[in-house]
Design a binder for these strands. Structure first.
Lengths: 182, 182
DNA sequence: GTTCACATGTAATGAGTTACATGATTCA
DNA sequence: TGAATCATGTAACTCATTACATGTGAAC
């Protein structure tokens, strides 16, 4: 988004798939091979910049399979069924292409906690304090989730580090801001 | 979002209006009285945690007017027409109610820049460097936009401070991460 | 025996974007 | 005279959520 004019962004070089589809592709590449496992990983590791729901992920897996980018097979192990996917050559290619294409990265953030704080009447200390506490709590929960991971690769550790720092900074800000109401 | 179980969130205490509607209400309360002015302000001040498009804002203004929460009048000044809104008593009440209600603040972030970095193959230095540069650039642009503001109220300054710190932290992370590829 | 973790899926709905269309004024 | 700013608006679309539905196995 351009913040000073109405000029529109360049169109994406490849609007074929949504970015969530590429996320799924990469997760499968990395060994998170069922919908359940992908969601669990994203919820833990990417919670501060990405999210996904089952209502999105299962249809997406079927679509990607239909497009020949992944292939799935049903596995039944001790009574439990799951559908395991693996990346096809075409899927690998499409993922690599997207990762190196020149699209402007979309940053689409909605932090209702911060919004509420911005909209609140700061004369009303109770309201500010309450919303500050809510923002703090949710941020702390996510920080704990991210900290609880032990990412195997350098890549994962760097991303984890970014999340930890950003969320720690947010918590510090919450504490400082609350002190001013002391 | 609960990150370790599938437990669903508590339902919102008041699902009547979307949070963007409350944003609009508060902007009008604060004197940003046309769709254009609201968007411009949000693009500048809230860019790191909120965004809005005209396709959303103009229908929303009409809806809120229809619901009696704001009232609008056409103003023509030196040939240019605009529609100025003001908050009604009912609108003020609804806004205050929302700000003090006990809803879990939704944090719905999609930072495609970070996602790309997480998904990239870090053996491929060119791809990582390119995505790092993109993330850096977009973050820097937003930081500049936020820094360029001179918010009149303590409230605005605090929110600005949060944005500056979070984005500065992100930039530092980008630089450090890039250095490792030196 | 009940809760938690594992596991997959659909239908209805909604929020928000993108693309398009229009037009005046101001400033270089 | 052309670009930027001010200004409003709609239609088509897409992405993603929420709520619902179902079932197994393991642990307490």
């Amino acid at each position: 988004m351009n913040t000073t004019t109405d000029k529109q962004l360049e169109p994406l070089a490849s609007p074929d798939l949504a970015s969530s589809a590429y996320m799924v592709l990469a997760m499968i590449r990395d060994g998170f091979d069922t919908g359940y496992r992908i969601k669990r990983f994203i919820d833990r590791a990417a919670t501060f910049f990405w999210s996904v729901s089952y209502g999105q992920i299962y249809p997406e897996l079927r679509r990607l399979e239909g497009a020949g980018l992944i292939s799935g097979r049903d596995v039944t192990e001790s009574g439990r069924r799951r559908r395991e996917y693996s990346l096809t050559a075409a899927g690998r290619e499409e993922l690599d292409r997207w990762l190196s294409d020149p699209a402007e990265p979309a940053m689409w953030m909605r932090n209702e906690g911060i919004l509420r704080l911005m909209l609140a009447d700061w004369e009303d200390e109770d309201v500010v304090r309450k919303n500050l506490a809510d923002l703090r709590r949710v941020t702390q929960e996510r920080l704990d989730a991210v900290r609880g991971l032990e990412p195997p690769r350098e890549r994962g550790r760097r991303i984890q580090e970014l999340g930890v720092r950003v969320m720690e900074e947010t918590l510090r800000w919450c504490d400082e801001t609350e002190e001013r109401f002391g």
